[in-house]
Amino acid sequence: MTPQGAIGNPAQDAPFTIYPSVDVVAATAMTSNSAIRMARGENGAGRALGDPLEVALTWQAAGAQWVHLVDLDAATGRGSNRAQLARITGALDVKVQLCGGIRDQESLDMALATGCDRVNLSTAALESPEWCARALAEHGERIAIALDVRMTPDGYRLVTRGWNKDGGDLWEVLDRLEREGCTRYVVTDVERGGMMSSPNLQLLREVCARTDAPVVAGGGVADAQDLRRLAELSALGVEGTILGQALHTGVITLPEALSAVDGGAASGASVR
C-alpha cells in the first residue's frame, strides 16, 4: 500500500481500456440506468436494448476489446441469467468481465467455466471475506473486487446486494483486501452510476493513493470530456472505465469514446 497522496500505479504507458456494458435483466439487455432502477426495486418498465448477445456483438464490431457483462437479476437475488451469460461469453471473440451474484464457490466455478477473462466479486468480498481471500489467492488476475461506494455523513460506505445493503467502511475493507493481495478494483460511486452525472474523480484519486493495484472506474460518464479526464488519471493507476448509459442512449458512440482516450492513454480497442 502506498502512502496517502502518493502515486499508486504509474501505468502511463498502458492502454486505457473502455468496457462497454451489457446489463441483463430477465434475459434482456437494458440501459444501465433502467437496469439500476429495476435492481433497486423502483417502478417503471425501463428501456430495453434487446437481445444481450446482439448488443455485445455490436460493441465487439465497433472495436471494443472488453465487454462488461452484468447479471442484474443475480446481483439482487431475484433470479439468474447464468445460461445466457455463458452463451454470450462463448460467442464473443473479445475479452469478457463477468459480474453479478458471484458469491460462493459454485457460482465462481460456473462463472470461470464460461471462459470469461475476469470476474468481479462484490457482495462476497464483504459477506464472505475468508472465502474471498482464498479465491484471490487461487485465481489472481482473473478476480477483481468491485467497490460500490456511497458518500454518507460518516464518510465513504460500501453497498452490496445490488446497492441495497450497507457493507461497511470503504477504507477498512480496502486495507483488508490489500493484505489479501487483490490485483484489481472496480470503483463505482453508486449515486453516479447510470446517471451520466460525471465520474467521482476525487474518489478515484483517493483509492489510487491507497493501492498499487490498477483501478477501473465504474460509471457516471456523461461525455467525451469525462473520458478524457479519466484517461488523465492513468498515471495514478486508473486503467479504464465501464461505459454504460451514455453509450446505450447514443450520447456518445463507442468509436467516439475510443477516440477520446486515444493519445497519452491509448484506447482499449487499440484505436490508431
Rank of each mutant, 00 (worst) to 15 (best):
L92Q: 09
T241I: 12
R37D: 14
G50A: 07
A86C: 05
L49C: 15
N120R: 05
R40T: 07
N9Y: 15
A260T: 03
A133L: 05
A29D: 02
H248W: 14
R205L: 12
G240D: 09
A45E: 12
Q12V: 11
Q202G: 14
H68S: 03
S234V: 14
D51V: 09
T31C: 08
T249F: 02
V261W: 10
C132Q: 10
L108T: 09
G5E: 06
A135T: 00
V221H: 02
D104I: 08
G79A: 10
G268T: 14
E178Y: 07
A213I: 02
D226Y: 04
V207P: 00
W59G: 01
A11H: 09
I7L: 12
G46I: 07
R142I: 01
R78N: 09
L174D: 03
A235M: 14
V186L: 15
V67Q: 02
S198G: 01
V159W: 12
G167L: 10
V55F: 04
V207W: 00
R179E: 13
R87W: 01
A135I: 00
V25K: 07
E172R: 11
P3M: 08
R210F: 06
M38H: 08
W66H: 00
S122T: 12
R142Q: 10
T211N: 11
V55I: 08
L174T: 02
G155F: 04
D73H: 02
G140I: 11
G44T: 04
R210I: 12
E141P: 06
A56V: 03
R176S: 09
L69S: 11
L98E: 03
P10D: 06
A269F: 06
Q97T: 02
V215E: 12
L204R: 00
D189C: 06
R78H: 10
D23V: 12
W66Q: 00
G264D: 08
G63A: 10
L233S: 06
D262V: 04
L98P: 09
G264S: 12
I242L: 09
L227K: 13
G90R: 15
G181V: 09
R229Y: 05
T58G: 13
R37E: 11
D117Y: 00
A146I: 02
D71N: 04
Q225P: 00
G219F: 10
Q105K: 08
G167Y: 06
D93W: 07
R87E: 15
G155Q: 04
S128H: 11
D117R: 00
V96N: 06
G140N: 09
E138C: 13
A146S: 13
C182T: 14
V215H: 10
R161I: 03
A135R: 00
R37A: 14
D51G: 10
A75L: 06
A209C: 09
V215D: 07
